[in-house]
Design a protein around this nucleic acid. Structure first.
Lengths: 342, 342
DNA sequence: CTGTTAGCGCTTTCAT
DNA sequence: ATGAAAGCGCTAACAG
C-alpha cells in the first residue's frame, strides 16, 4: 500500500559528490554554502522528490519550533480571532502552531497537554476548560522548563504569564450601563465561578449593583455553560419569574441571542420589557434585531500578545512568569437591545 | 533557559536491569510483557518523569498515526461539526489529527500541504480554498502513495475520493421552494464557480428556474466570498435594483443574515417583499427574525465518513479513489424567511 | 516472556 | 566553503 523508499540527504550528497552536512546546510540556505552549490542541491532535491524529515531533524536538534495551543472550542469568532493573532506572530517568527480542543473537558485537556508534551512543543498557550481544577496537569511542563502561558481563561501560577481582559471592569460597565437605562432588577447569566472570567465579571456585576444601591440577590445569578441551549433554558426560567427582571447581562453573545429569541417569541419586548447586554462582540450581535449591546473583546490582539510573549521568552528576551501578566482593554458597545433611554 | 537532560527508555532499563526493548514494549502495553514487569516499568517511568519521544518513534517506525486536515477556515459551525466528526472517528482508531487553515488562500494551502507532507501524515483530508486552481500541489502526496481525500470543496482526481452533499439538488430544492412561495425574480448569491459546491448549486438554481418556465438572467447571480461584508454589499446592490427581486437564495447563512439585516434596515419586509433562503443550517439561522430558511448540511456525518474512508484505506480494507466517492443527503428546512404562503 | 543489534535521517562538533 | 564522525531515542528483526 505504501511508498517506495524515501530520498534522504545522503542520496542527494552522493549524486553531487558532496557531504550530507553540505546538503543539509544547502537546503537550509546556510550562509556558508555557495550560491552555486545551493542551486545544485535544490535542483537535485526537487528532481529526486526529496522531502525534509521533520522527525529526524527534531530528534537530533532537540527543538521543534512548535508552539502548542489548547482551547476549549474552535467555534466562536472570538477564538478564531485569537488563533489568527497567534498564527500571525508565530509565522513571522517561524514557529508552527499546533492547536487542540479540550471540548470544555478537563480530562481531554489533560490528555492534550500530555500529547503536546510528548510532541515536545517549545511552549504552550492554554485557555482552560470549563471544569478544570488545579494546575497539577501542567506541572510536568514547568518541571522541564517548558514555558506555559494562559490566556482568557487562566489559572494562577507564579511561573505562568496570563493574558486577560479586565473582566471585573467589563462586568461592572455592563451592569452599570443597564442601571443607567433604568434597570433595577438585573440578572447575570454566567459560567463556572471557578473560572476567572466568570468570577471577575460576577464581582463587577455585584459591585455595580452595590454602587447603585441595589440589593444583590443570589437567585439573580444563573450559572451554566453559556451555549445555545443554555440561552433557551434561561429564557424559560426567566418567563417563570415574578416579577420579571428588567435587565439581563449574559457573559456570551450566542447564549444571549438564543435567550432573547425565546423571550421575544413569548411576547416580551426587548429592550422595553427587558434590556439585554451580551459579551464578546460576536458578529451575531450585529445582525440580530434588536442589535445586541455587548462588550468588545480584542481577540486578535490577545492572540498576538500571547504569542509574542511566549516567543520572547523562547528567545531569552523576557521571562514567562506571573509578574509579566497583561490586562487588555475591553469596551462597552451600546446597541438597541439595551437602549431604553432615547 | 532550557531543561535538564531527558529521561529515555535506556534510563528506565538500567534502573530495572531490563533491556530497552522490554521497556519499550512495557510502555506500549505489549501482550508479551508480564503484568508485573509492566507495572515496574510504568512506576519508574512516572518517578523519573519519563516522556515518550514521538520523533524518535516516528523516525524509526516510519509511521506517524497522524492524519492531516486542511480547511479554508475554522470559523463556521459547519466546519466545527466536520472536525468533531473526524476527530471522533480518528480517536477511536487511535489516529491523531493535525488541522490547518488555508484562510481561503491557495498559496497558504500549498504551504500547508507541504508541511503536512514533511510531517509525514499518513493521509490528508482537504476542503480546498476559494481560489485553488488545479491539483498539482497535491501530486507529491499521490506520488508517495499518501491517500488524499476531498470533502465539501473538492477537486477531481482519479486517485482521490470525494465526500460531498448533493449541491445540485440542494440548489434546485432551495430555488424551487422560493418559486413555490410565489417568487418569480430570484437572485442567487454564490461563490467562485470554479468550486464544485457553488457551480453545482448554480446549476440547480438554473434548472429549477428553467423547469418553472422562468428565464435565467446572468445579472441575477452574484459572485463573492460569502462573508459578512459580502452580505452587506449584496444588500446595497439589491436596493439599487429596479424592480427589486422577490427572492434571494444565498449559499451561506452568515452572508444571508447580514444581507437581510441591511435590507430590513431599509424598510424591506422579509418575506413579504423579498423571501430568503440560506445554506448550511448555521445556528444563526434559528435565532434571527424572521428565522432563516436554509439547507441542512450534515457536517458531523461528513467528517465521520471522510475519516472512516481514509482510515479504512490505511488499514488496507478499502481504496481511496474517485469511484468510492460519496454524496450525502441534505435537506431543505423551511422557516419564516421564505414563507409567503400560509 | 525478554534481550541483542542495528539503524531510521538528520544536525552538531570539530576539522580542514 | 566543505567534510567526517557521532549520536539524538526509539523500534524492527532476529534470537533465545
Amino acid at each position: 500500500m505504501h511508498s517506495q523508499k524515501d530520498v534522504t540527504i545522503y542520496d542527494i550528497a552522493e549524486k553531487l559528490n558532496l557531504s550530507p552536512t553540505t546538503v543539509s546546510r544547502g537546503l537550509k540556505d546556510h550562509p556558508a554554502i555557495s550560491k552555486k552549490t545551493k542551486k545544485r542541491i535544490n535542483d537535485i532535491a526537487a528532481e529526486l522528490g526529496y522531502r525534509f524529515n521533520t522527525f529526524a531533524s527534531n530528534l537530533r536538534s532537540k527543538r521543534t519550533n512548535t508552539i502548542g495551543v489548547i482551547i476549549p472550542r474552535m467555534n466562536s469568532s472570538f477564538m478564531s480571532a485569537v488563533l489568527a493573532g497567534m498564527e500571525k506572530v508565530a509565522n513571522e517568527a517561524s514557529y508552527n502552531l499546533i492547536i487542540s480542543q479540550s471540548l470544555e473537558s478537563a480530562e481531554k485537556e489533560a490528555v492534550n497537554v500530555k500529547t503536546m508534551f510528548n510532541n515536545r512543543v517549545d511552549g504552550l498557550m492554554v485557555s482552560v476548560a470549563y471544569d478544570t481544577v488545579g494546575v497539577s496537569q501542567f506541572e510536568m511542563l514547568l518541571e522541564k522548563g517548558i514555558p506555559l502561558l494562559f490566556f482568557d481563561r487562566t489559572l494562577d501560577h507564579p511561573q505562568c504569564t496570563s493574558i486577560v481582559i479586565d473582566n471585573y471592569k467589563s462586568g461592572y460597565l455592563a451592569t452599570q450601563h443597564l442601571i443607567a437605562q433604568g434597570c433595577k432588577n438585573i440578572i447575570h447569566i454566567t459560567g463556572n465561578l471557578a473560572r476567572n472570567v466568570y468570577a471577575d465579571r460576577q464581582r463587577g456585576y455585584e459591585s455595580a449593583l452595590k454602587d447603585a444601591g441595589i440589593q444583590t440577590d443570589p437567585n439573580n445569578t444563573f450559572i451554566n455553560v453559556l451555549d445555545e441551549q443554555a440561552g433557551i433554558d434561561c429564557a424559560q426560567k426567566i418567563l417563570k419569574m415574578n416579577p420579571l427582571p428588567d435587565g439581563v447581562f449574559v457573559d456570551n453573545d450566542t447564549c444571549a441571542v438564543n435567550c432573547m429569541a425565546i423571550l421575544m417569541n413569548n411576547g416580551i419586548k426587548i429592550p422595553e420589557d427587558i434590556a439585554f447586554i451580551g459579551f464578546n462582540n460576536d458578529p451575531i450581535s450585529r445582525v440580530i434585531r434588536p442589535a445586541l449591546s455587548t462588550i468588545n473583546y480584542p481577540g486578535f490582539e490577545m492572540g498576538e500578545i500571547a504569542a509574542h510573549k511566549l516567543i520572547a521568552h523562547l528567545n531569552g528576551q523576557q521571562s514567562i512568569n506571573s509578574t509579566n501578566s497583561i490586562i487588555l482593554r475591553s469596551e462597552l458597545i451600546a446597541r438597541d437591545s439595551s437602549k431604553r433611554i432615547k
